[in-house]
Simulated assay, not measured.
Amino acid sequence: MTAHRKLIRRTALAVTASAAALVLAACSSDSGGHDMGSMDSGSSPSATASAKAGAHNDADVSFSKEMIQHHRQAVDMAELAADRASSQEVKDLAAKIKGAQDPEIKTMSGWLTSWGEQVPEDMSGGMGHDMSSSMPGMMSSEDMGKLEKATGTEFDKMFLEMMVQHHEGAIEMAKTEKSDGKYGPATKLADDVITAQTAEIEQMNKMLGKS
């Protein structure tokens, strides 16, 4: 009877030990898995967030800085139309250009600030335009002076011719951004610039009787 009890006790102990070993193994495996998982989940979202926050390059910075200056001049030109243009169509187009480009200036300024970059000083008017003359399509201060002095049909023609040239420069800059840029919103804005300003060039050429 005693021997039988010892056998039962040994069997129970063996089963308990085996069960304990299995539990420990499982815990160890789960723990290791969770640790790896937490490492992965901890680094992955962080890396993703970091990538999103820093997903821009020098081309994006250059595009934003230069296009802000480019847009500012277009807005200056557009503002002259209100009391100088004789054609309502020219006035409406100028208002449309200002309405589109003012918000884009603010958007690009916001990007630069978030990247720790300096927003270009507003050099609108005067000699400031010559400082940006290296950008395609920019008017010189002499050009701007002529436009400011023009009125009526002379202004209409000069404004349209200058703005066609200005838009062509902006499209060239936008194409460079689409090719070299990395920041999604910036390349999207570049695409929007190409679409909108290509259509406006066609409209202005028709108004000039060129197409």
Rank of each mutant, 00 (worst) to 15 (best):
K182A: 10
S211P: 05
A12F: 12
A12L: 15
K175V: 00
T113A: 15
K178D: 11
G37T: 10
A49S: 05
D35A: 13
A94I: 01
Q69P: 07
M158W: 05
S64I: 01
A100Y: 07
S140P: 09
I68F: 04
K146G: 03
K146Y: 04
E154K: 09
A174D: 03
D122C: 03
H167N: 08
D35K: 08
L160Q: 05
G137I: 00
V23A: 14
K188I: 04
H166Y: 02
M138D: 01
V75W: 11
K96D: 11
E168H: 04
D156C: 12
G116W: 12
L7H: 14
S29T: 09
A12G: 11
Q88E: 15
I8G: 12
K52F: 10
T153E: 15
S179H: 07
S124Y: 06
H129Q: 14
G99Y: 09
K206H: 08
H56G: 04
S109E: 06
A14L: 14
Q73V: 02
G169W: 00
R5N: 04
A53V: 13
L208R: 05
M39A: 14
A21V: 05
K98A: 15
S109K: 09
K149A: 13
E104C: 10
I194A: 11
M173S: 01
D180H: 05
A25T: 15
P136W: 01
Q197M: 05
